[in-house]
Design a protein around this nucleic acid. Structure first.
Lengths: 339, 339
DNA sequence: AAATATTACGAAAACGGTTTCGTGTTGATA
DNA sequence: TATCAACACGAAACCGTTTTCGTAATATTT
C-alpha cells in the first residue's frame, strides 16, 4: 500500500521548500527551468495529485453541489439527476445526492449537514411534507448564509432563489384541450391534494381548458387522492361510478393502472376511453397500449438547474437577482388516444 | 446575509483563545463552568456549526462515500442507490454519485477525481466498456492507496476487494426450471454478450437447467444481443423464426417488448407462451400481463454494500481480508406464467 | 512558609495546500 | 567599484479545526 504523496514529501526528497514545489507544479515564472523540470518529473513519477480537501479549505470552494430530492426511485427525478450530473461534471463539479423521502425532518437534516462547508450550492425539489407544512425556514437560513439554491419542479414562492419548473398548467391544459377537440364528453382528472405544487398547477390547467369549453367543470369528475401513492380501491370505485370517456392522470402509474381496470371491464382504448398521463417514463412507453403523456423533460430541467446554480456560484457579482425558468412541456402522442 | 461564524470569531468576541472555545464546545473538563456556559450560549445564539471541510482535513476522514455506476435511469441501480443512501445516511455518511454512462474513460476520470481526498471509499458497478476491455488498473490503483472499494452486481474477480452480487446463475436456473416443470418445450433465452458479467451468469444458469433436463440445449434458441440496448428488429426476427413457448429475458424491457410482439401475433400469455424477466421494476408490475421476474433486491444490495464499506472504513484493523456476499434472488410470480 | 497539586487557560503544531512578501545571489549598469 | 535590477527561492500566513503541551494562578498539603 503506497499512500498518497504530498507537497511536503516532494519538498523533503528534493531538498527544496514546499512553496517552491507548489510553484514549480503550477509552472510559475518564479522558478527556474531546472527546478521545475526536476519537480514535475518527480511528481509525475510518484503520481502526485493535490488533495481536494486542502484546496477546498483554502479556496472556500468545494466543487460539490448538493442535490436534495424526495425520492430517487422515480423516473422523473432520476432523469433530472442525470441532467444535473452530466452538466455539473462537465464543469468539474461533483454531485452529492440526499433523499428526503418526502420527510420534512430528513430534508432539514440533510441540508444542515451539507450546508456546513460540504457544498457550494443546492439543487432541490421539496418533499411533500415540506409543502404540506409550508415551513421553509431551512431554505431561508441557507440562502441567508449566501449559499445559492435552485428549486426545481416542486417549488415554493416563499423563498427567494432561482427556480426551474415546467409549465404544468399548460401541459394539463393542452392535454385536456386534446380530449375536448376529440369530442370527449366526460373528461375525468385523477390528481392529488393541492399542497403538491405540481398537482395544483395541473388541476388548474385542466379546469381552465374545461371552463373555456361549453362543457364546463363537473366537480364529481375530479378524484383527489391524498398522495402520489397508488390507491387502487379509490381509483376503481371512482372509474366505476363516473364512467368517463377520457382520463387525465397526474402521473404514469395512475394512468397505467386505470387502463388495466377499464380493459378488464372490456372497454377499448382509445375508442371507448382515452388516457393521458404525466411523466414520460419507461412505463408509458412500454404500457399496453402505450400511454400518451405530457413529457416534462427532466434531463433538460436538471441541466438548466445545474447551469443556473453553477453560474451563480461562479459569478463574482453580488447581484441579488433571481430568475424563474419555465420549461415547456410537450405532448408525446402514443396509442392511448386516437391519432 | 450573515456569513457562517467560526471558532476564531467566537474567540475574538469573548476574548478567549480558539483552543478554549473548541474545548468549551466539546464540554471539556479542562474548561471552567463559567467559560463553558458563556461559549456555548454564544455559539448557540449565533448558530455555530463546525466546518466540515476543516474537520475532514484534520481527521483525514470525509464521511463521504463515492458511488460510481454506469447509469441512473435504470430501476435496478436506482434502488441500489436508495439502499446505499439510506444506510450511509443513518451512519452519518453522504453519498457522491458519479455516472460512468457505460464509458471506461468516464469511470476512470470520476474515480480519480474522487480519490484525491473527496471520499473515504467507493461503491461501484463496472461500466460495460470496462468489462469489455477488462482493464481494471484504475481500481487497483485505488485499492493500493488503501481506499476501500466494494464492487456490486457488475464485478470482476481481478480486483481484490469486497464484492456483493446476487446469484444470477441461480436466478436463471430457477426461472428456467420453472418453465421446464410447467412442461415448456421450446425455452428461449434473450441475453447479451458474455462480457457483461451478469448476462454471462444468467446464461450459465439457463444452460445448467436445460442440461439437467431431457431436452438439452438448443443453441438456436439463444439470442445474444450486443448490449442491453433494445434491438427491436433482432428480437422480432428471432421470435418469429424460433416460435418458442417460453422466453427468459435478462431484463424487463426485452421481456415486455417481446410480450407485445407475441400478443400482436394473437398468442395468449401465458397459455401459448410464457415469459420471465430479470429486475423487479415498475415495468414488470404494471405490464399487461404483469411480468414474472427474478427479483434482484437492489435496495438490499445497496444496504449490504454500504455496510461492508463503512465497516471497513471504520475498522482500525489493517486486515487484508475480503469477502464476497452472494444474495439470493427470488422469483416474483405474476401473470406472464401459469400459476 | 515552602512544596506540591490542581485548575483553567493559551501557544503552537498539525492536516495539505496557496500566495504574498522578503532576501541572498548573480550579473549588468553607471 | 558601488548601485541596482533580475532571478530563484524560502519563510510565513492563511483556510478552520483538534489536540498536545506548557504555564500562570490558585488551592492544598506538610
Amino acid at each position: 500500500m503506497k499512500a498518497k504523496i504530498t507537497l511536503k514529501d516532494i519538498a523533503r526528497e528534493l531538498e527544496v521548500s514546499i512553496s517552491t514545489v507548489s510553484k514549480a507544479l503550477k509552472n510559475s515564472e518564479e522558478i527556474s527551468r531546472d527546478t521545475k523540470e526536476k519537480v514535475q518529473a518527480f511528481a509525475k513519477l510518484y503520481n502526485y495529485k493535490p488533495n481536494n480537501i486542502a484546496i477546498s479549505l483554502k479556496n472556500k470552494r468545494t466543487k460539490n453541489i448538493g442535490v436534495v430530492i424526495p425520492d430517487i426511485v422515480h423516473h422523473f427525478f432520476t432523469t433530472v439527476i442525470r441532467g444535473i450530473e452530466k452538466y455539473a461534471n462537465a464543469r468539474g463539479y461533483n454531485v452529492i445526492v440526499c433523499l428526503s423521502e418526502e420527510s420534512f425532518d430528513k430534508e432539514v437534516i440533510n441540508m444542515e449537514m451539507l450546508a456546513n462547508g460540504s457544498i457550494d450550492g443546492f439543487i432541490m425539489s421539496l418533499s411533500s411534507e415540506t409543502q404540506e407544512k409550508a415551513d421553509y425556514n431551512h431554505l431561508k437560513e441557507v440562502t441567508e448564509q449566501g449559499i445559492p439554491v435552485v428549486l426545481f419542479d416542486r417549488i415554493t414562492h416563499e423563498v427567494e432563489c432561482d427556480k426551474v419548473i415546467i409549465d404544468d398548467e399548460l401541459g394539463a391544459y393542452q392535454a385536456t384541450k386534446k380530449f375536448i377537440d376529440q369530442g370527449k364528453k366526460k373528461i375525468a382528472l385523477i390528481t392529488t391534494d393541492d399542497y403538491l405544487s405540481v398537482s395544483e398547477a395541473r388541476t388548474r390547467g385542466y379546469r381552465k381548458a374545461l371552463e373555456e369549453s361549453p362543457m364546463g367543470i363537473d366537480e364529481s369528475l375530479i378524484l383527489k387522492l391524498p398522495s402520489m401513492e397508488l390507491d387502487e380501491a379509490a381509483i376503481k370505485a371512482f372509474l366505476n361510478k363516473m364512467d368517463p370517456d377520457a382520463v387525465l392522470c397526474v402521473n404514469e402509474i395512475f394512468a397505467v393502472y386505470s387502463m388495466r381496470l377499464v380493459q378488464e371491464k372490456g372497454l377499448r382504448i382509445p375508442e371507448d376511453i382515452s388516457f393521458i398521463g404525466f411523466t414520460d417514463g419507461v412505463l408509458s412507453k412500454y404500457a399496453n397500449p402505450s400511454l400518451t403523456v405530457v413529457a416534462q423533460h427532466g434531463e433538460k430541467m436538471g441541466e438548466v438547474s445545474a447551469k443556473m446554480l453553477i453560474d451563480k456560484i461562479e459569478s463574482e457579482a453580488e447581484e441579488e437577482t433571481y430568475q424563474t425558468k419555465i420549461l415547456e412541456p410537450t405532448l408525446v402522442i402514443r396509442d392511448s388516444i386516437a391519432h
